[in-house]
Nucleic acid binder design. Structure first.
Lengths: 247, 247
DNA sequence: TTAATTTTAATGTGATCACAATTAAAGAAA
DNA sequence: TTTCTTTAATTGTGATCACATTAAAATTAA
């Protein structure tokens, strides 16, 4: 008999339009992206199939897809695990995020009209609310939503899927990074981004994007990666950061 | 009964160590990368299974993986096809290639010792030989080999898989671009790259990479994409480009 | 010939079983 | 208790079948 699972995947409802494998994929992807799965954790086909009450077939396809996207790793013995990150690799991922997201932002800039910028402001307000409420998922998802809305303003964004791939690979560290966030997040870079967009300032935009990325994840140290992965870490108390809205 | 296939996949031998799905994946990937599959061409599970003499199962997994990597596309009716490129998307892909490959090259620069540079020179010679011999595959594979050897000098290259993903997406156009190559390829940018590496010149490296990419694919016009995909186009005659080695 | 309709074939998805390889558990020997 | 051996359970992979949906072919009607 399968062991009881130590993680939850039932956050997402099944949409009648989609196939079973798409649903399984969404559920697993969401779990990884929002830091619910621990690095080095093994994922087995039958266990996930049992949790989601589907057969093994759609789970196989979903795991294959996530593996191809770098969200999961196949070990030499063919076991599928959530990948661990050595510090040098994390550093590379962050540099690449800076590179790609700056690129995407600059390219999207001409397409950001007033409507889109208002969207960004709304999303940012929601994210700040989530921060005050210690809403773990809200912070992460709000941040991703903000960046995605920015980059996809460009109608032919080839870059966005690649950026999401990077988010997927960093995903398992998000629980840790958010827990340590108040120590480093003293300035709302999203406001800087919006400000630069309004004033058509590509250099300001680029540096704001870079600062936002580095301050949200770049501070993780080697010992952070080696000693723990942020499970059971307390989330920041509301009001720790006085104000996230200035400028 | 299945129709006779109009493409060949038997270029790669089956390695006893690998699984069937890995072999199928390699075969399909190679075919796409080297421009053997036409855009909008449909790939069916049973047809490929018939060609490669395997069951449907490993083909399903391989197609799922390639789809996740952007090498194939699933249409609304769930049919799997080789994706077509609208001009705007190709332009984005090229810009992203320039961005990522410049980044990877600069990052790899400190790791390029004399041994590695000699490797690059050898590969470049081989590629020029392939050009003289009108060796279609040799040109494409040699070029990829050159760039891959350069970028993977960095021990923690997170970028390389993403660059390969871009190559995969442009792959179906390679037959066309190589056929039109002599009209635009009048200067061996690979020599420029090597020269910049030897003199530790990051700016020269970046501009050489950019020029190499644009001159190898960036010249494709809208009508090139819409009217044909380069099948049955004659390859350049040997000696058309007098000398690929100068500087 | 052309257009609309029916019939047939083919396709991706999902389920289930078999199998070899790996891992975990149990037992034996020190 | 500790170490080694043996046994049992679990794993990913592959094969085969059923099924609903879609595409293609055949048929009919104009």
């Amino acid at each position: 008999m399968n062991k009881e699972p130590d993680f939850n995947l039932n956050d997402l409802k099944f949409d009648q339009e989609e196939t079973a494998q798409e649903w399984v994929y969404r559920a697993l992807r969401f779990a990884i992206m929002s830091g619910q799965l621990q690095p080095s954790q093994a994922l087995t086909i039958r266990q996930i199939a049992g949790i989601l009450k589907v057969s093994a077939m759609p789970v196989r396809e979903a795991l294959k897809r996530l593996t191809a996207e770098g969200a999961l790793t196949i070990k030499a013995n063919r076991r599928i695990i959530v990948p661990t990150l050595v510090p040098a690799r994390l550093a590379e991922l962050i540099e690449l995020r800076v590179e790609l997201e700056s690129f995407a932002a600059i390219r999207a800039m001409p397409y950001l009209d007033e409507v889109r910028i208002n969207q960004l402001e709304t999303i940012n307000d929601q994210q700040n609310d989530a921060f005050e409420k210690r809403d773990f998922h809200g912070i992460i998802l709000g941040n991703q939503n903000f960046h995605r809305t920015l980059y996809t303003a460009h109608p032919h964004s080839v870059t966005m899927p690649m950026i999401e791939q990077l988010w997927l690979q960093i995903g398992p560290l998000h629980r840790l990074s958010v827990a340590k966030l108040p120590e480093h997040y003293t300035h709302d870079r999203h406001c800087d981004i919006i400000h630069s967009l309004k004033h058509h300032n590509p250099f300001g935009l680029k540096s704001a994007i870079e600062a936002d990325i580095r301050e949200s994840i770049g501070f993780l140290t080697e010992s952070d990666l080696l000693t723990n992965y942020g499970d059971n870490l307390p989330l920041p108390k509301p009001g720790y950061v006085k104000s996230l809205k200035h400028i």
